Amino acid sequence: MNFDDYCQQKAAPPGSSTYYALKRAPATYQPLLTALFALRKEFEETVKEMSDPAIGRTRFAWWQQEIAALAAGQPTHPVSQALAAHAEKNPLEYPALQALLAGYAMDLDQARYLDYPNLRRYLNSVGGAFAVLVARTTARDPLQASQWAAPLGEALMLAQIIDELGRDARCGRIYIPVDEMQRFNVIAADLINGRYSDEFTSLMRFQTARARDALHLAQSTVPAAERRWQGTLRAQVALALALLDEIERDGYQVLHQRVALTPIRKLWITWRATYAS
């Protein structure tokens, strides 16, 4: 398996949401974008799927060294090799990659957030930082991309938190702010043990409305001159909005399962997002 195949399988296997979102990018940029999404997946697995924090920290330190090796032109990991191979015409910002990794490292030290302002630090450090990397890859004006891409990334993270709520809770991570759970009379044990209630429904209605509003607002700020070049991010927003609608229709049953869109629906949604608007 060469490094491109590895990145494809890691980040965007056929039928996945990322697979269809990446197909909406200009073809010449798709290999680099796929490598970026694969890198994000590696970071997620490093800090979120390690039952032993010590192992997570060891892998985190390894990735710090690997990003430095990538910057020095000596990558060893298939994802790093793919980034090096495809970044010749579009140089990567290695400090931005290190900053993204540092954002994910927050998961090694913090599993709960007291309020929304504290959660937003995480949303910006992870979701915002990654969306800026993606946007700058194809942006007509990369220097201005952070102004409109970071809010898109934050909003996408809000939607992801809802979608992955049950799995994250069972792994000991709850991204819904503590004060908001208290306001709706929902406790951590409810999420961990998959207990549904009217209070949980009200909490999720609030979370979903905020994520949906954030997605619409962030999408509206993408400059007209950039829209045709940002097919991947626009497709991700469309998929996130459709998934939130599906979760809502399903009664917010996200504690014991992942609500999913069918591949044909993903294809239609992403096509419509980039060509019919």
Rank of each mutant, 00 (worst) to 15 (best):
Q9W: 10
L22M: 11
K23I: 04
R24D: 04
P26Q: 11
T28N: 11
Y29P: 02
A38Y: 13
L39C: 05
R40G: 02
E49I: 10
P53M: 13
R57Y: 00
F60G: 01
Q64G: 05
Q65R: 15
L70I: 07
A72H: 13
Q74P: 04
V79W: 03
A85C: 09
H86K: 09
H86D: 01
Y94H: 14
G103S: 07
Y104D: 01
D107E: 12
L108A: 05
Y113C: 04
Y113V: 02
L114I: 10
Y116E: 10
P117T: 08
N118D: 12
S125M: 09
G127W: 03
V134K: 06
A135M: 04
T138N: 08
R140H: 11
D141A: 11
P142E: 10
A145R: 05
S146C: 08
A149M: 06
P151A: 06
L156N: 04
M157Q: 13
Q160S: 07
I162G: 00
E164A: 14
E164R: 09
E164F: 06
L165C: 14
G166W: 07
R167M: 10
G172I: 07
I174G: 09
F184W: 13
R195A: 07
F200H: 06
F200S: 05
L203W: 00
Q207E: 15
A211Y: 00
R212E: 13
L215W: 02
L217M: 12
V222W: 04
V222K: 01
Q230L: 05
G231N: 04
A235N: 07
Q236Y: 08
Q236N: 12
D245T: 13
E248P: 03
Q253Y: 03
Q257C: 02
Q257G: 01
Q257I: 01
V259C: 06
L261P: 07
P263S: 10
P263T: 10
L267T: 07
W268K: 14
T270I: 12
A276I: 11
S277A: 15
S277V: 15
